[in-house]
Amino acid sequence: MAMIETDGLVKKFGPFTAVRGITLSVDKGEVLGFLGPNGAGKSTTMKMITGFLAPTQGTARIMGHDVTADPIAAQKHLGYLPEGAPAYGDMTPRQFLSFIAEIRGYRSSSAKAAAQRAIELASLEGVIEQPIETLSKGYKRRVGFAQAILHDPPVLIMDEPTDGLDPNQKFAMRGLITGMAAEKAIIISTHILEEVESVCTRAVIIDRGRVVADGPIMGKTAAFNVFAPDGSSAGTLNASTADLDAVFRELTRAHA
């Protein structure tokens, strides 16, 4: 059973269709890089998988639980870092992570242990007593990451986890993701194509709400299945990860 499954996800906002039928499945050990131009529907798709937005059509399942029919069961198995890593700015990371631990059902000593583990994994030791709103962008992102992995979820969904981080922090974040990848199904969205090579085992390119290419990343090469707008296969495309930039522009060109 795939740990994350979506089946024909469609999202309409009034007359505007943001997502036009996205079907994916992500297995254990996979790190799926979600690529696409701004406005392609990456965040909207992630919001539907996590249960924040209700799909207009289609379903999403996490560990077999339908997020619309049984959101709580699905969300228990999910760690989610929303875009911009929102957190309650008036709390300190320790208070915030204790709140998350408690709301996820940990009690007293186990809540402390879970919060402590997350603090260590995200290297937050130096700032745990400072209000989150006073932290730098990099630390805020790490607080959001700590929140997402606090309960060691089998499914992790992160919207631009490395956005705004400096090169050292990016490197550290990528290390964290690869370090836990074997036991989890992970989706990350990113604009940084080199990130695909360093952390992802698979890349999916979406454009105007549709999957236009999907394929594994094997070392330095990517083997994409390319899809036409009606969803039918339009052949395959093998490329070196160094050429991802060109592939990305080629497949999403009409949009610009």
């Binding site: 919001k47 996590t50 249960g51 924040f52 959101p71 709580i72 069961a73 969300q75 228990k76 999910l78 989610y80 929303p82 875009e83 911009g84 929102p86 957190a87 309650y88 700015g89 998350i100 709301i103 996820r104 059902g105 929140q147």
Partner: peptide
């Protein structure tokens, strides 16, 4: 405004 609603509503609580 702060976006924390996205966090709150994706936590496993009714």
């Amino acid at each position: 405004r702060a976006g924390t609603i996205e966090l709150l509503l994706t936590l496993p609580i009714p």
